[in-house]
Design a protein around this nucleic acid. Sequence first.
DNA 1: CGGATTATGTCAACATGGCTGACGTAACGA
DNA 2: TCGTTACGTCAGCCATGTTGACATAATCCG
Lengths: 173, 173
Amino acid sequence: MADVTTRINPLFLRDEELRQGIELLYFAYREFTNEPDEMLSQQGLGRAHHRVIYFVGRQPGISVSDLLSTLRITKQSLSRVLSQLLKEDFIHQRPGLRDRRQRLLELSPKGVELERQLTENQRKLLARAYREAGAEAVEGFRKVMLNIMNEDDRGRFPAQTTPPLPGWRGGAS
Amino acid sequence: MADVTTRINPLFLRDEELRQGIELLYFAYREFTNEPDEMLSQQGLGRAHHRVIYFVGRQPGISVSDLLSTLRITKQSLSRVLSQLLKEDFIHQRPGLRDRRQRLLELSPKGVELERQLTENQRKLLARAYREAGAEAVEGFRKVMLNIMNEDDRGRFPAQTTPPLPGWRGGAS
DNA sequence: CGGATTATGTCAACATGGCTGACGTAACGA
DNA sequence: TCGTTACGTCAGCCATGTTGACATAATCCG
């Protein structure tokens, strides 16, 4: 029989492992964005607004062009969501000091509060997943995710400082 | 000073770690879908078509309703992409044997070939990431991703059969 | 100074892929 | 026979991405 499943076949196992990886990304990402999407739609906002709010909150005073290169969307796409966030007072802007053409963005108190709620949701989900998977698994998760993304984006993450963990497996203690 | 960053603060570190997790998911997922999206648009297809092609390829003979509950979209949304895939001969359908109301879906040769190209791209990206991260990291990645997704979706994945790895760290060998 | 470049914005149009609501048909099953 | 199920369609709306064209103000540089 030529049926590849009838005998142990490393190539088949490899394919299966990789397909599972594809699906892990799909299902986990979907769940990760699920509740924030619901919270946002109650405010008349969408996922695009979330991304803007997130990165402005992450880097207060970010310029529009930096935000554009972080998000990798067109200025027209950004404009649509950003002007809504400005109009509805989730975000404030001020001109750059050195370069007065720039509009530096920061969250308003209202924006801070929304960001907190959204990020809190995702932090809790992640914290639970991290806790149940264990510190070592988190380290592996981080390694794999960094290797999936492209080099430019990888540069956004500080090199890992791995503090010796209390429960470090195989430790001599 | 009340500045939380001026002293070692476990809560601050925790927040930073979790925010990095949020960003790992965002940037990795974006990269993961980037090239397939380009390949699809050359065929006049989009990411929604990819998901249909992927899951039909994964489970040949899947019914429309099973596909719907896998994708968690409405039948109207699915209909749009599925009928295009049928019309353009990426997918064939046949009536169910036991239940003739069902339309069981499978990839045509043309669909198999497209699925192969798309999945090949993502498999290669994942395989490289897995290789560079190492087997132990892959195990951690899997654990974390399974814990991020909801229980229903987790049930799609077989319980992990962890074969003793050759390079198992801390092993007595 | 004056011209090129940069940072940002606007208007218009289009594509994709979600959604809801309403309605239709054929097959199954008690 | 009748209710339910497994589909399907039409119509319209919304969010969010795209391209192209054009505008304004600030900066930079020869």
